[in-house]
């Protein structure tokens, strides 16, 4: 049987392939204990988390921009 960590990693990869980064990072967190010693895994997880943070920041700036435009 595949253990839950491996299953979570697979599901994370499938989600990342579909650009569903939020789901992907959720599964990567579940898989963390299993793969924590793997540098590749850590890079994948940290890059995904960074990407989500960037997307959030972009969203906030865009909202801010549109509010400024409305004021002008």
């Amino acid at each position: 049987m595949l253990n839950d960590g491996v299953k979570a990693y697979l599901r994370a990869l499938a989600a990342l392939k579909d650009k569903d980064y939020r789901t992907g990072v959720g599964y990567l967190k579940i898989a963390q204990n299993q793969f924590d010693n793997s540098p590749d895994f850590r890079i994948l997880k940290e890059t995904t988390e960074l990407l989500l943070a960037v997307k959030e920041e972009i969203f906030e700036l865009e909202v801010e921009n549109s509010e400024v435009k409305e004021l002008i």
């Binding site: 960037v54 865009e62 801010e64």
Partner: peptide, 23 residues
């Protein structure tokens, strides 16, 4: 603010490409 937004969008694109290739 626009320059920051542009930088972030470039970074977003770089990260997405990287993840795409890694996957």
């Amino acid at each position: 603010m626009t320059a920051r937004l542009e930088s972030l969008k470039r970074l977003e694109s770089v990260l997405e490409n990287f993840l795409g290739r890694a996957v």
